[in-house]
Design a protein around this nucleic acid. Sequence first.
DNA 1: AATGAATGAGCGTTCATTCAT
DNA 2: GATGAATGAACGCTCATTCAT
Lengths: 204, 204, 204, 204
Amino acid sequence: MERRLTSRGAERRRQLLATAGRRFAEHGYHTTSVAEIVHEVGVGKGVFYWYFESKEQLFLEVLAQAQAELRRAQEAEVGDEVDPVRRIERGIRGALTWLEANRDVLAVFQLAATDVRFVGALRAGEEIMAAELAGHLKDGIVSGRIPDGDPLVLAHAVLGAVEALAHTFLGREGAWDEGVADTAVAFCLGGILATRRRGASGSS
Amino acid sequence: MERRLTSRGAERRRQLLATAGRRFAEHGYHTTSVAEIVHEVGVGKGVFYWYFESKEQLFLEVLAQAQAELRRAQEAEVGDEVDPVRRIERGIRGALTWLEANRDVLAVFQLAATDVRFVGALRAGEEIMAAELAGHLKDGIVSGRIPDGDPLVLAHAVLGAVEALAHTFLGREGAWDEGVADTAVAFCLGGILATRRRGASGSS
Amino acid sequence: MERRLTSRGAERRRQLLATAGRRFAEHGYHTTSVAEIVHEVGVGKGVFYWYFESKEQLFLEVLAQAQAELRRAQEAEVGDEVDPVRRIERGIRGALTWLEANRDVLAVFQLAATDVRFVGALRAGEEIMAAELAGHLKDGIVSGRIPDGDPLVLAHAVLGAVEALAHTFLGREGAWDEGVADTAVAFCLGGILATRRRGASGSS
Amino acid sequence: MERRLTSRGAERRRQLLATAGRRFAEHGYHTTSVAEIVHEVGVGKGVFYWYFESKEQLFLEVLAQAQAELRRAQEAEVGDEVDPVRRIERGIRGALTWLEANRDVLAVFQLAATDVRFVGALRAGEEIMAAELAGHLKDGIVSGRIPDGDPLVLAHAVLGAVEALAHTFLGREGAWDEGVADTAVAFCLGGILATRRRGASGSS
DNA sequence: AATGAATGAGCGTTCATTCAT
DNA sequence: GATGAATGAACGCTCATTCAT
């Protein structure tokens, strides 16, 4: 239902989306009621249903927006770098920098992971990121910069490590510093560049 | 109010715990009602409250049990291995093996991460695992087996990578094979053993 | 959360309050369900919680309203009478007249007396009435119109006698007549004016 | 269903009755569960239903016992006194003394007043006391000791005053002393002996 | 006699959603 | 566009009562 919105309307919509995103992140999906959202924005309940079909669709939109913005930030950071390993590094740094400024987003992602209605959209976004990362890895493998290995598995390992670090250290007051990003990069690149030694642990 | 249970009672309790755990994993916390759980077990509603104080406490128990069993499985796998790098490897393999046989558990962990009432217990368990892993890392650093780096940050990176792989590849039918565990180990150990090159990405 | 109500809303609220008050008086607090109240008013369950925070708060409001109206009626009856004994008489008559027209109220008072959540509010109201009455008594004692005695004890005795008569004779169909009020007044004033003979029973 | 009880059984029954009475008085009827009662006594739930048909019947029995004991205490106090006014005085004192030692009972009476299932039994007991008191009053009127008036109305006024004083001053820690009983007696007898001056308040 | 376990109707309350104004 | 009011299914939970052992 394409709706033409006045600029005031578009602003309202943005406001609702932002408020909802924050509250979802802070209190969870089920524990955030439509009543709370509209109350915080200071409008009546009808307004909500003028701009959004349902609470479910609202969440999906919050999620999609967060995913799109993260990707955009990452792309901007990666820029036109051609070396695949450097692309990966920049991607990691870009994601961490953006997440640092948008801490709610991780909570929204986690929320999405726990609900059948949202997990599909979440995974789809993850797959896109994983596929892109896997593309860089493949490039590196082909060009001999990166030892052979399953690019998709490696991509998910990188994503998982980055997300865990972001989550753990952004979530604690005062725990975040540049060193965490440096360690994230070093760990991931080290993992990528070392994978030829499959299953080996003791080799010096 | 310590309750002495007959063996029939203990069995009922176990039954409810298992059923609830499965449904939580499949449908989420809020989307699983007490009515559904008792219906599936085939008992009346009151039975639930005979064995559990509340739905919340039940979830906490499901979570605690899963955490305890995972740690137990890991400890059994690590055994008396003395080399810290090998301890880490065995820990990763032990966790992945156990999670393969108990796939619901990851979903329960994710659920717990999204609810203020549970996140404390979840994080406490995570911190224990991270601390243990960090201990191995510290041992390795002291003995010169592992290059210097922040053990806690590395520990969370490893945990994140492992969890992401478990989640991504155990969640998809047919996607799991031994190679994933091998790659997980190789990636993590590579990441750990490479960390001296802080922030460096281009070194060959 | 101060709520601005439309006139339709205010009317609904009044309706619910009145219906609840009647049902409470007839069936008791625990034996009157929210479902019954809204059913009688002919609205959905949610409406109740639009206007009241909880069943408990509703009862408190019913109680407070009854207390306020009773006091108001009494004050109107007492008016500007200056003689303390006549003030007491008018107070008794005013209360009985109002209670005759609002018989539910006595039942609500009794209900409140049996629940820890309400007894505080009830006693507070009673204390106000007792204190006022005690004030008249003190005036009378000081001016010599009333023999010496503990004004607060006497006040409670009067209140108890009046309440018992109201309760007993208003509760029975056809038992109430002007004579009861006359006897109430005569009994109470006699008791008050006789108190100097402490503990004495046989004096003529 | 006449049941022959062993002496152990009779003791159990008494125990349940006493515990229930106390809890009813302290927490109310609906707010005292059968589970709590049997837990406090330290027996299983089945025991309760072995000795009592239902919670309702149990309450009725608690009430009946309290009424019977109060009457017995009063009768013992009144003894063979022949003067009707002195009989009334002794009745008041006997009731107050017994209530002082059995404070729960007033709460039980109030509870009974608020439930349709119990109010009948309560009123029946009250009527008996009122009738007895009215008998004394009639005797006094006939013999000229007491001025003319409606004995039943006066009886209820006396009962109400006494109950209110007991309730108010026994309910407050440290508020009870002999003076209250003296005032109660003086007030009631004053009220009784003064009733000829119907509706008159200003006569010196 | 007594127990622990079970029942299930019913309770107070919430909340996404709709709608008359 | 926007509001306050209304809906009602569903929820977590309680409890008097029953019953197999």
